[in-house]
Design a protein around this nucleic acid. Structure first.
Lengths: 144, 144
DNA sequence: GTTGACGTTTACGTAAACGTCAACTATCTT
DNA sequence: AAGATAGTTGACGTTTACGTAAACGTCAAC
């Protein structure tokens, strides 16, 4: 039933450092119980940690994650939590799609630049330093 | 010929703040001349700023940009500059493609989560608080 | 009785790329 | 002469997600 975990149990399972888990507690994302000084995590804590990490993968800040988690904890205003989480998710989706466009654009530019660089280097290799070089250099300067 | 620009000229043209341009100078990415205290930028400085901003768009750090720019300024070891820039570009390309995969993955997860959230909300809207809700909540908890 | 593994706390450090003052200085305009 | 407008130089603040060090407790194993 009430399975419990030590901090390193969770750290290893989720491949984070114990420091990270303590940090989340410090930021009030987790509130494990104590046995004396030691932290004891239950299934619920484990689930929360999992949610935190998933949130991070999706690019949410810890603050945003905390907010959504807190809303969930109100236990009853669940609808609000769902609505907020839905909205945040939609916003995040828009952001991600925008980022993807930027990255695609950057990849295109970069590939072009690489072609130009290779061309310039080939020129350099073939002959010495003359006007050809300078045109190549100008191209590079313009594209890098 | 020797066109010159004030700091706000460049700031406006490239849509950055003057502070940003001074910051680049502080980091030795730019070295405009002075007339008294005032900075005076020439065509060369303008070109460098453009390169800096392009580098940033491609996701290079200022340190990396500086390095490539400095190599270019040696004026003669050009081949080295080309090689270094080429290598950095190729590395950056690999990174970007990796990031794109991550983003695509996140987008997929997020879309799934959104569907689940919408479903859960629809359920909430239709009926009160019962086991159906809890199953929906569990789904959300598992997917958000 | 000591070694090692694991735990604790507090608190400062890091990286990146600027933003945001504060307090001047210099020049142009009215 | 007084503003208005632009420019300057420090120096500290911001953000995020932890890392790292110091200094110590606890417990089982050898």
């Amino acid at each position: 039933m009430g399975d419990t975990y030590t901090i390193t149990d969770l750290a290893e399972e989720f491949r984070v450092t114990p420091r990270t888990i303590r940090f989340y507690e410090d930021k009030n994302l987790l509130h494990p119980e104590r046995q004396g000084l030691n932290r004891v995590y239950g299934r619920r804590d484990r689930a929360r940690l999992q949610l935190i990490l998933r949130g991070k993968r999706l690019g949410f800040s810890l603050a945003a994650i905390k907010e959504m988690l807190d809303l969930y904890d109100l236990g009853d205003g669940q609808v609000e939590q769902l609505r907020v989480t839905l909205r945040r998710s939609q916003e995040r989706l828009v952001e991600l799609e925008s980022q993807r466009r930027d990255i695609n654009e950057a990849i295109r530019e970069l590939k072009e630049g690489i072609v130009a660089l290779e061309k310039a280097l080939a020129d350099k290799g073939v002959n010495g330093h003359d006007r050809t070089d300078e045109r190549a250099a100008a191209r590079v300067k313009a594209t890098v």
